[in-house]
């Protein structure tokens, strides 16, 4: 579903944000990107959604060669990716319903689709009762759920979340994680960048740890932090635990598997 090969991103001015990252994420996986600020989590997310191009290396996302995608094709890639951010990015002049519908409207979906999909996804995130409210009338957690609903309403193959709980208290964060988990169970691949130890430790999903732009740990069923070791130690330790293959995505998602797991990192 997502594959990065030797990806390096150097920003203007010489800041190396991501260095030689190889990463393979299968369809239906739930992956945490962890690491301190500036370790390259957000840059990885931005590379996957083709907000940035890598300085070198190749990226495939949802069957598209994202690192080599012409600008005018970006909208097509974005339609198979949902994105959620720390700051929600809701439109203050639109209601909850309209914010979610907006995503379908501007991609040219017919009104009938909008009328059936929006209530459905609002129910999924537990906001059916708040459809006619405006973002400022909602709590942070509710706003984030609107933004998740908007990201998910067109049933993307992949959901990219950059610190979605960054502005929320722990209790609210748990609610958000439940929704992301529910979305993941429909077969949607979820990649979430986070600092939140408690969440990562509780979920026990695949954890990709970044340090200064490099992947220093890639562990299934992992927790946030472990004793720091050298890269070779990590590789050695992880070798036997690296997934043979994920046993098919849970849930009945009908989308075809586009990327496969051959040629692992």
């Amino acid at each position: 579903m997502i594959r990065l090969q030797n990806v390096t991103k150097v920003y203007e001015g010489g800041v190396v944000a991501v260095k030689d990252v190889a990463l393979e994420i299968a369809k239906g996986e739930f992956v945490f990107l962890v690491g301190p600020s500036g370790s390259g989590k957000s840059t990885l997310i931005r590379l996957m959604m083709r907000e940035e191009r890598p300085s070198s290396g190749e990226i495939w996302v949802a069957g598209k060669h994202a690192s080599d995608l012409a600008n005018w094709k970006i909208p097509h890639l974005r339609r198979s990716i949902g994105t959620v951010f720390q700051d929600f990015k809701l439109l203050p002049t639109k209601t909850v319903y309209e914010n979610v519908a907006f995503s379908l409207e501007v991609t040219g979906r017919p009104r009938s689709v909008i009328r059936s999909q929006v209530p459905q996804v609002l129910k999924l995130v537990g906001l059916s009762a708040n459809a006619d409210r405006y973002p400022r009338q909602l709590s942070g957690g509710e706003q984030q759920r609107v933004s998740i609903a908007r990201a998910f309403v067109n049933r993307p193959l992949i959901l990219l979340a950059d610190e979605p709980t960054g502005n929320l208290d722990p209790a609210t964060s748990v609610g958000i994680m439940r929704i992301l988990d529910r979305i993941n169970r429909t077969g949607t691949t979820v990649v979430m960048a986070t600092h939140d130890h408690a969440i990562v430790d509780a979920m026990r999903r695949r954890v990709v740890q970044l340090e200064r732009g490099r992947v220093v740990r890639d562990q299934h069923g992992g927790v946030y932090e472990r004793r720091l070791r050298t890269a070779s130690e990590i590789t050695e330790e992880l070798a036997p635990t690296l997934p043979p293959d994920d046993a098919g995505a849970p849930g009945g998602y009908a989308g075809g598997e586009v990327s496969d797991r051959e040629g692992s990192a």
């Binding site: 959604m49 600008n71 005018w72 970006i74 909208p75 097509h76 890639l77 974005r78 339609r79 990716i81 994105t83 990015k89 439109l91 907006f102 995503s103 501007v106 991609t107 040219g108 908007r150 990201a151 067109n154």
Partner: peptide
């Protein structure tokens, strides 16, 4: 920004 995030075509924007 949001239109671009959710994949509105360039011309639509």
């Amino acid at each position: 920004e949001i239109m671009r995030l959710v994949g509105a075509s360039n011309w639509f924007v």
